[in-house]
């Protein structure tokens, strides 16, 4: 069994590579975009606010799988073509930015209005108020919800199979079909669990860094 797992490893590692690439790129791009989305959602500029609301509705209201299919197979019909990986990344980043945006919005709205008043009387610009006073407090508040999304994301990466990208689960399924065995899928499950355990440990440490105040 160990030697069988060992033989599966090259295919698994290649799949894992795609999984981690989609995962990390999505995180790096969608979290800052999520902050911007939350600001748009909270903006008093009506057209911006409405546009962001519509965007959030579409992104949260349709399956991510459908969004990937639409961007990769649908947009070429109107002449917009992306390669597989780019199409997948656009779908993931737009989708996750919507979720992160709503999480950040909740965090921002939970900050006491007095913090803005205090910053204003001390001469802070709105930008500096947000960066130095509001955002650090928001990050602490939203950390558990972000952790939840990130763990969902690592499993959502399996959806990229739909455009033919070989990620971890697909590598497992191919091996499973070929060898008429469930063991490759067991191995895939173990790898996902290991990744999730690692993420949980990282977030625990991260939350610890913010536990110095209440």
């Amino acid at each position: 069994m160990i030697s069988y797992f060992y033989r599966l490893m090259p295919a698994m590692i290649s799949g894992l590579n795609t999984t981690l690439k989609v995962f990390s790129l999505t995180l790096i791009l969608s979290i800052p975009l999520g902050v911007l989305v939350s600001l748009g959602r909270l903006s008093k500029i009506k057209p911006l606010n409405s546009a962001v609301q519509l965007y959030i509705w579409v992104m949260r209201g349709t399956p991510l799988l459908l969004q990937i299919v639409f961007i990769f197979f649908g947009l070429p019909i109107v002449g917009i073509t992306f390669d597989r990986f780019t199409a997948v990344m656009i779908a993931f980043v737009l989708n996750y930015a919507a979720y992160f945006g709503e999480i950040f919005r909740g965090g921002i709205e939970s900050i006491d209005k007095g913090q803005y008043d205090a910053a204003k009387v001390l001469g802070f610009t709105p930008f500096n108020t947000f960066i130095r006073i509001i955002l650090p407090q928001v990050i602490k508040i939203v950390m558990p919800s972000i952790a939840n999304e990130v763990i969902t994301l690592i499993k959502d990466t399996a959806l990229v199979y739909v455009v033919g990208l070989g990620e971890l689960l697909r590598a497992g399924k191919i091996a499973s079909n070929r060898d008429a065995s469930l063991m490759p899928l067991v191995l895939v499950g173990i790898i996902y669990l290991a990744l999730t355990a690692l993420l949980e440990a990282i977030f625990k440490k991260f939350e610890g860094r913010f536990s110095y105040y209440h």
Binding site: G114, Q115, D117, V121, H214
Partner: peptide, 19 residues
């Protein structure tokens, strides 16, 4: 900004920055 410097305000609930 110059005027702000001349003014200090202590809020009823203080509004210290908790972080």
């Amino acid at each position: 900004l110059q005027i702000r410097k001349k003014l200090g305000l202590v809020f009823q609930n203080f509004n210290l920055f908790p972080h």
